[in-house]
Design a binder for these strands. Structure first.
Lengths: 216, 216
DNA sequence: TTGTATTTTTAGACGAGTCTAAAAAAAATA
DNA sequence: TATTTTTTTTAGACTCGTCTAAAAATACAA
């Protein structure tokens, strides 16, 4: 249906669209680790196929079709991540690259059966919502720890930064999904946060607090 | 590691090597539904990478490395087929094209865990042996029905023809893997075979008898 | 053994996707 | 507003894998 490159561009544009209305050529180039000139070429092609709205120098947005395709790729990615962690017992910091390949397996029937096989999970191992087969998925209602006040209680439920380094840091300090925490104190000097978890106090930096999401 | 095209060529050459010692350019072209000139180009590349032994006009054979790679692709293909049938409940005639895509997912760790997850199956849904993680697999000890005599007893255990049409024919007549049969009679006129299965007599043509394999 | 048919290889081209270098447009600044 | 800086696009080239058409090598037959 769509080439590997096309799918990756759509996914990148979708991701960037969550942050900015109109996505720029340079943003896409950075996201895909490629050159702006390559991006321009591909944008012309995607526009021709009616997957994006594109006028020269004006940035791009996804069309309805383009968004549907992008969400489907995200669905596939997250279901495979869930499979790798829940069924094959990989750790949450090991699955990204594999899922990056697997998300391009084209059969929707396959992905729907995989979904059913796993009991229609609603979130992937990093707490990101998994779109259903029609493309519906909940807006993320999770809050970064840095955005809530002292004495707030919550359950660790997701991450903003998906890097291996960050996930391994969390793993090491047992700051994993499902853990219940309370914000005890915010250090005014450097915005570090002291959490209570299972009757232990843990200090995390502002960087960590920004990237660790909780459900209230 | 290897490109999609390279992997497909290695797989094709391996398959053809089972029949003929030295595989010809035209055979490969037919197997991959491509042109002889394209094959020649690729053969030069594979030879440069020491995956095949190739001298102009002489046909090719796999090197040890090439064979190892080919067997690994077959392992991945067959394990994914097993997964699709056993876990996702696809029918045996539906899985080939999906597995054709999935066999190119590169992680060996993934495939080893998948193998373990499914309990180290020894044969795929079509009765073909699945190589283990070291590349060992049993030579197929199955015999076509056309090659055994009257009164032979056996269990349907594999197919030579993997086409959807043939698999659907077998499915329709319940000639599926695991069924116990006895060869009752071979019609001398057209070499049709009459089988007994579960106290019913079934007549199959010579074509079917050639492509349906049994374990004695 | 010579001539014909077949197979295989070479030569040159193309599309997809990428790159560098340079030009054009837009944004930022003086 | 004019100038500089940044962003984006164009132009031209490269690799990968494919193709067609033509040439070369091999196999087959008389």
């Amino acid at each position: 249906m769509y080439t590997l490159a096309e799918e990756n561009y759509l996914k990148a544009i979708f991701k960037l669209s969550q942050i900015t209305e109109n996505v720029s050529t340079n943003q896409i180039a950075a996201e895909l680790a490629t050159k702006a000139s390559s991006v321009t070429d591909m944008l012309r092609k995607l526009a021709e196929k009616l997957l994006i709205n594109y006028t020269r120098y004006q940035g791009v947005s996804l069309t309805q079709t383009g968004e549907k395709v992008a969400i489907n790729i995200i669905r596939r990615h997250r279901l495979w991540e869930y499979f790798l962690v829940e069924k094959l017992h990989f750790k949450w910091d090991e699955v990204h690259d594999m899922a990056e390949e697997m998300e391009h397996i084209s059969s929707n029937e396959l992905i729907d059966r995989l979904d059913e096989f796993m009991g229609f999970p609603s979130r992937d191992p990093h707490g990101d919502p998994i779109p259903d087969s029609k493309g519906n998925f909940k807006k993320n209602d999770l809050k970064p720890i840095s955005a809530v006040g002292v004495n707030t209680c919550g359950i660790i439920s997701g991450v903003k930064d998906h890097s291996t380094a960050f996930l391994q840091y969390l793993e090491k300090h047992e700051l994993t999904i499902g853990k219940k925490i309370t914000i005890k104190e915010i250090i005014t000097y450097d915005n570090a946060v002291i959490l209570q978890m299972e009757n232990k106090d843990i200090q995390i930096s502002r960087d960590v607090a920004i990237n660790l999401l909780i459900a209230l």
